[in-house]
Design a protein around this nucleic acid. Structure first.
Lengths: 350, 350
DNA sequence: GTTAGCACTCGTCGGCAGAGAGTGCTAACA
DNA sequence: TGTTAGCACTCTCTGCCGACGAGTGCTAAC
């Protein structure tokens, strides 16, 4: 599964077979149609005949790296073929420095508005990778409160604003158990903020005991809010770039539907999350390798970002099995680095 | 354009012709294929022959309410035909009380987390109307500050949280011109909040004159933030329910692409906004009636919500010209009412 | 080990005929 | 005068057939 997993087949292939596979993958990725021996022979750096290529293709097919969808009509890579390509033939996935500069530049322009970071990251990633991007907001294992604020709306209604250590902000509406004007709420806030600073949901709840009605209610709501910010079910997935894959032949029929289903529910996250390694290495799942059945016909490139043990999010790319893994991997890797850097700024304080 | 616009053609149609048109629209909406005289004759409450229906269809075609895409093969409604249907034949678009109760119930469960109101409204609306929904966050003509807060991240970096009168919250990252710890920032906040409460972007900017470096920078950033919250360009459109229309034959080809393009940019809002009437009446645009060329093949049902003159948002539904206008109009109308009620709660305070 | 040649397979595309749905028109009927 | 049955006509859709071409495996020669 892992990009760095050792692969035994390497020895079995001759240099020319590797070249054939490399060219075949590249050609198939752009054309989307089975590739024949003649096409490959033309693209070959050395001058070889199509018959030679045919022999090599037969060998590759025997190892299970390519297959023919129909008896006539060219070959396409298998999932294993892609896997081999990604491991050994692709080269180092590093975004061109031009792209890197462009992305950093774009990000600098929205840096100030951190509510839009996640949305923006999704857009940039979709554009760069040329596929559907997936980004979750960063969240910490257990959300700890940094600050909260209450604003009176009506005598018995107030706005509660929570700010966590990882600078996530949530606003909630409170239905107060008793009348309270802004002055009352402000006084209450001044008293309570030092009491709850740095606490998680459980700790806040434990403070409820012995508190009078209004503070008890506020504490309860804070705990609910904190819990919601940490839970996986409530983690929203932002995505972008649907247009990149919806036009492609693979998703013409019901498959396009499936993508939308996947992106909407939390099933995708549930399937992917357990597979994510702790480090920030880019993970690649090709076709059958995918944990979820629904992803069986997709290529998925994911990475975590954030600060280990403190706050992490996920970002990645979803596309047809026939996608440019080079583009996707390099984009995901770079974006994960970029987002991690940004988190660093936000989180380095106490 | 308006739902209530008078329509002169009414007199011209006999009761039976109206019935034919009504049945034809209904049938075409569900089947998506041209409807023939025989099908209509079978569905007719009175017993009539297909020949009679053919005569009536010819009359309707002469008036411009139906057309035949091909010489043989049934008829479909024209945009004018839909318009007539919506005006005179559809009946009162009122959501069933069951649906109303279900929606209110669902909303009660997320009421507390008002960051997710807009997203949630989009989901509910898409589901109820069976089309793509569009919802913008409520915004006021000119955003006025209710409260702000600063949280120190690093010596020269801080988080600025703005809360406006209409309870919108925005978080921004500040790069401070000089070192400032939390105590300094808190003191500064205490002093500045009373100065800027209730002010708009311009008023905040006017206070910069004469302020020392740090307060001047903060005021400047507040003004930028306020301005961003009010501007149309920065208004995000949330949408949901793509799966509802992407499967339909109308959007099989490049048209599906177009929808995505529309939803992504701000072009949609720019085209629709000038057309919205001030009241909260539901507006219906059918095919050619649409202000933007890109919408030429869509049906659009929109309404504003909020509190007149104070804070308003837009919500609506986008679908193929052949959509169930009854479902869409009733859903949009109900959701606009619901959201307005919610705004009322948030905004009724000073 | 490589290559040219050849017979074979099979998907794609255009043309074509038949079925079916729907229409307009006319003549008969109430 | 309005309604209906009948009929000839049009046009789409579908399946079928054959030509074409891309690609293959195999064999024999280099």
């Amino acid at each position: 599964m892992d990009t760095l997993q050792p692969e035994r087949e390497e020895q079995r292939l001759t240099e020319r077979q590797r070249m054939v596979l490399r060219l075949l993958v590249r050609e198939y990725v752009v054309s989307g149609r089975p590739v024949g021996s003649k096409t490959l022979a033309e693209q070959f750096p050395m001058s070889v005949s199509s018959a030679t290529i045919r022999n090599e293709l037969a060998a590759l097919e025997h190892v299970g790296f390519v297959q023919q969808p129909h008896t006539s009509g060219g070959r396409i890579p298998t999932d294993q073929g892609y896997r081999y390509y990604v491991h050994h033939l692709m080269g180092s996935p590093e975004l061109s420095s031009g792209d890197q500069i462009m992305i950093r530049h774009q990000f600098r322009q929205v840096e100030a508005q951190l509510d839009s970071w996640v949305d923006f990251a999704a857009e940039v990633l979709a554009e760069t990778a040329g596929n559907v991007s997936i980004v979750t907001a960063p969240r910490s294992m257990v959300s700890r409160l940094r600050h909260f604020e209450m604003i009176s709306l009506q005598p018995r209604m107030a706005l509660l604003i929570l700010v966590t250590q990882e600078s996530a902000v949530r606003q909630m509406m409170l239905h107060l158990p008793e009348d309270a004007d802004q002055a009352t709420l402000s006084r209450l806030t001044d008293v309570m903020v030092p009491m709850v600073r740095g606490l998680g949901a459980e700790d806040v709840e434990s403070q409820i005991v012995g508190a009078t009605e209004l503070p008890a209610y506020v504490l309860e709501q804070i705990a609910i809010g904190l819990r919601g910010m940490g839970s996986v079910e409530h983690t929203q997935i932002r995505h972008s770039g649907l247009e990149n894959i919806l036009g492609q032949p693979e998703f013409a029929g019901a498959a396009g539907h499936n993508v939308l289903e996947l992106l909407r529910g939390s099933a995708l996250l549930g399937a992917l999350l357990p597979q994510m390694s702790v480090g920030h290495e880019v993970q690649v799942f090709i076709g059958d390798e995918n944990p979820a059945d629904a992803l069986r016909h997709f290529g998925v490139v994911m990475a975590t970002y954030g600060i280990d043990g403190e706050v992490t999010g996920i970002l990645g790319v979803l596309g047809p099995t026939r996608m440019s893994y080079w583009r996707s991997i390099s984009s995901v890797r770079y974006m994960a680095r970029l987002m991690s850097d940004l988190m660093e700024d936000l989180y380095s304080s106490s």
